[in-house]
Amino acid sequence: MSSDAGESRTRRIVVLISGSGTNLQALIDSINTPSLPNSSIVLVVSNRKAAYGLIRASQASPPIPTYYIALQTYLKEHPGKGRSDYDREVGRIVLQACPDVVVLAGWMHVFGDGFLEEMATGDRQDSIPVINLHPALPGAFDGMHAIDRAYEAFQKGEITKSGVMVHRVVKEVDRGEPILIREVDMQAGESKEAFEERVHKTEWEVIVEATRKVLGAVV
């Protein structure tokens, strides 16, 4: 593909969510703007039926196709299948949308090798990039409840800053190569709610910037 063709082709984004979808909304609002040009969210996948992000997708203009697939529901409907089978099934659903990048935006399920192996198949020479938003700095507060843990650590005098990063997804939780890192200073006397709000606002910026950065590297 020539560079001119690559620049003009609409980049296809698949977003995986589990909750309210505020980070998804940041991506939706940035589509085909200078922040995220020549792009389209072609599918939103949720592992929670009540995730408000599914409504955000349906109310987008134009509406974004959605897919709901929960681990426990999948296991009940497929006796003998396991977690790895579920991961591969999610991967196959994602692949059908032919994405240029897969963005985990509040996806509360840790993928095993199966999902990443699916992303490495198909007609592409390279794996489809899979990136994840995590509200902490690299190597700090991996896994769940990172914002709460950072706030508690600041109250104990253990840290003076936290942050947000988007990283490539690997098997080890939140240990993939960072794509974009943004520090968030801690403020004495600030409530946890106010700190969390500042972190979320930073997330909305970082997830868009990192997605654009990855798409710019896709050939």
Rank of each mutant, 00 (worst) to 15 (best):
S3A: 14
D4R: 08
R9W: 07
T10Y: 03
I13P: 01
T22D: 01
T22K: 00
T22N: 04
L24N: 01
D29A: 12
T33M: 08
L36I: 07
S40M: 08
I41K: 00
L43N: 05
V44F: 12
R48I: 14
G53R: 11
I55V: 15
T66R: 01
Y67L: 12
A70D: 14
P79D: 13
G82M: 02
R83T: 10
Y86K: 00
D87M: 12
R92S: 07
R92C: 05
L104S: 11
M108H: 05
H109W: 14
F111T: 07
D113Q: 13
L116W: 04
T121W: 00
D126N: 09
D126F: 09
I131M: 09
H134K: 04
P138K: 08
P138D: 11
A140R: 13
F141I: 03
H145W: 13
A146I: 09
I147F: 01
I147N: 02
I147A: 01
Y151R: 01
E152A: 15
E152S: 09
G157T: 13
E158R: 12
I159R: 07
H167W: 11
R168D: 11
V169N: 00
V170G: 10
D174Y: 10
D174N: 07
I181D: 03
I181M: 05
R182N: 01
E183F: 05
D185A: 13
M186K: 09
K192M: 08
E193C: 11
A194C: 02
K201V: 02
G216V: 06
V218S: 07
V218H: 04
V219D: 13
